[in-house]
């Protein structure tokens, strides 16, 4: 295992994609920061805080992790080094774990660099972090678990699909689907207000109209709501989105997110190893 990790990390540090991905994550955080500072300079206000940015400003992170994971493990498949590792006596679980550890380390590095940009530049410019230090620290540690869970979820298809191009496409599309489709849809379903109306509408000519408050038929309740909420919080991208929300400052069910991150990590790793043990490596 130590040899596998050593060779894996040696390849990782030489990978241009690691540095490109890290640069892309840092650039994306810097862009969000500059954009919001520009708005602040124009109108004196911005709805972005340093705490939001540290968790929500890394939209590029899943795509960068996906590209790195797919190409890193895809090279192992393409060059048949996976098979060679088994021939020299390493177990399949050890091979899977070593790839998982290396890819998780790369994902955490990308996330750390993105967060470093926020802490070094964003926090002073946006007026520091909101909330207490121990809550922020707890959230940062929990979000690291979510990033690890995301890496584990992406390592699963990357290891199991032998074709490099198909593997790259699958992993990349999975990351994009989670980031741009599944998490926003689940989040918007959960954010639907319980009631609609109950406010006064003022038109341009000064006339007003009172809109009656009534229950919102689109608001999910009971089992349906619990299921959607579980799905949203179980997915690592959903967890990262939750940390970025202002109201997520230690809510009642805060323990759920790190617990779900660990569960998600364990579930995807166990599934991956179980299938990988039976896979025919050509």
């Amino acid at each position: 295992m130590r040899n596998l990790l050593s060779s894996g990390f040696s390849r990782l540090w030489r990978s241009k994609l690691l540095y490109l991905g890290t640069l892309a994550v840092a650039a994306s955080v810097a862009y969000t920061l500059i954009n919001n500072l520009y708005y602040k300079s124009l109108w004196g206000l911005t709805d972005l805080t340093a705490t939001n940015l540290i968790f929500a400003g890394v939209e590029v992170l899943p795509v960068a992790i996906a590209a790195l994971v797919a190409l890193f493990i895809g090279t192992d498949h393409g060059d048949h080094t996976l098979r060679n590792k088994l021939i020299v006596g390493h177990g399949r679980a050890a091979v899977y774990f070593s790839n998982l550890i290396v890819c998780t380390a790369a994902a955490l590095l990308m996330y750390a660099v993105g967060s470093g940009v926020v802490i070094a530049i964003g926090a002073p410019l946006l007026g520091g972090f909101s909330g207490t230090a121990h809550v922020l620290l707890l959230q940062i540690l929990s979000s690291l678990l979510s990033v690890a869970a995301l890496a584990a979820l992406l390592v699963l298809p990357a290891t199991l699909i032998p074709g490099r191009a198909v593997s790259v496409l699958t992993v990349l599309l999975l990351a994009l689907a989670l980031t741009l489709l599944v998490t926003p849809v689940l989040s918007s379903v959960l954010d639907v207000p319980e009631t609609i109306g109950g406010f006064e509408l003022t038109y341009g000519d000064g006339t007003t109209q009172w809109i009656e408050e009534k229950p919102n038929p689109e608001y999910l309740t009971g089992f349906k709501r619990q299921t959607v909420q579980f799905l949203h919080e179980f997915l690592p991208t959903g967890q990262l989105a939750e940390y970025g929300k202002e109201e997520a400052r230690l809510p009642d069910g805060f323990w759920r997110l790190p617990l779900y991150a660990v569960l998600s990590l364990v579930a995807s790793t166990a599934t991956g190893i179980a299938i990988f043990k039976r896979q025919n490596l050509k």
Binding site: A165, L169, L176
Partner: peptide, 14 residues
């Protein structure tokens, strides 16, 4: 490169 082409194709859409 097929894998690189796949990444570029998807990222171009993005």
């Amino acid at each position: 490169n097929r894998a690189l082409s796949a990444i570029v194709g998807v990222l171009l859409v993005l």
